[in-house]
Design a protein around this nucleic acid. Structure first.
Length: 259
DNA sequence: CCCCATGTTGTAGG
DNA sequence: TCCTACAACATGGG
């Protein structure tokens, strides 16, 4: 489930488990998602991870060797830290072994993710034209970026160049909380609505993080657990509807979110 | 067999 | 230049 709150969960997991431990071995498979040159990964052996950073859906692991590992999960993925004696998780694409007899696996079944290496997080971010992280974006900047656009609001929120971290599921949740129809053109959204949208976005992200990005733990008035066509709207007597917006399956309540 | 899935990227067209 | 639509990538589940 790798949107911003999910990746934030992974970041905390890494911070708790793998920092400041000597890397004894790096093993990768030959899948196309390993973008980093093999020798650059091998050269991390004997070094350690000293810090992590998340920007949007990207997770960075800084080493004490001037290099930074870049993780992106695509549509599926997980990271697992486990005792070296345990079985390697299925679909592990890279495994770091540590001197505490534990391993870290980057798991990516569908191979839509990637694992890269960079000399500079800032450089990598510029190359990707990655917008500011949704959680640290100010209201003023959010409104400024939004004011210069003309397309649909869902496409806007999901475009990682505008702001980074929102994907299909959380965009739907935010638009539901803001009571904005997902097909709405951004120039049809009032200043008051834009401000409200910003605060709803922050609230949804913080709430999701607080609940470990687990939709089952989200508040009752959240839509995410109801991502099924014809499911009952958590706020009114209406039914959730499924449509395609910005090329993605979109769930919303036609009665709460009128155009 | 079919369709669907939390993402990104490249291409083509308006 | 900006926006939209769509295919491709790869795998598993219903």
């Amino acid at each position: 489930m790798p949107e911003l709150p999910d990746v934030e969960k992974y970041k905390k997991y890494l911070d708790q488990n793998v920092l400041h431990k000597k890397i004894t071995k790096v093993q990768t498979d030959d899948s196309r998602i390993i973008k980093a040159p093999k020798n650059s990964l091998k050269s991390l052996e004997g070094h350690e991870f000293k810090g992590s950073k998340r920007i949007g859906k990207y997770l960075f692991l800084e080493t004490d060797n001037k290099k930074t590992i870049v993780m992106h999960f695509g549509m599926t993925g997980d990271i697992k830290y486990y005792d070296h004696g345990e079985q390697t998780p299925k679909n592990s694409r890279i495994i770091f072994a540590f001197n505490d007899h534990h391993d870290l696996a980057f798991v990516n079944p569908r191979k839509l993710g990637k694992l890269d290496i960079t000399n500079s997080i800032e450089e990598y971010r510029e190359k990707k034209e990655l917008g500011e992280d949704a959680l640290t974006l100010s209201e003023k900047d959010f409104i400024n970026i939004l004011d210069n656009k003309t397309g649909g609001i869902k496409a806007f929120l999901m475009d990682q160049k505008n702001l980074s971290g929102l994907g299909n599921v959380y965009t739907d949740e935010i638009l539901f909380q803001a009571r904005i129809h997902p097909s709405t053109k951004v120039n049809n959204i009032s200043g008051k609505q834009k401000k409200d949208l910003y605060y709803k976005m922050m609230d949804v992200l913080q709430t999701a993080i607080k609940h470990d990005a687990d939709p089952a733990k989200f508040p009752d008035h959240y839509l995410t657990a109801h991502r099924k066509n014809k499911d009952k709207c958590p706020d009114c007597e209406g039914e959730v509807e499924k449509v395609t917006v910005a090329g993605r399956s979109t769930y919303f309540c036609p009665s709460c979110q009128q155009e």
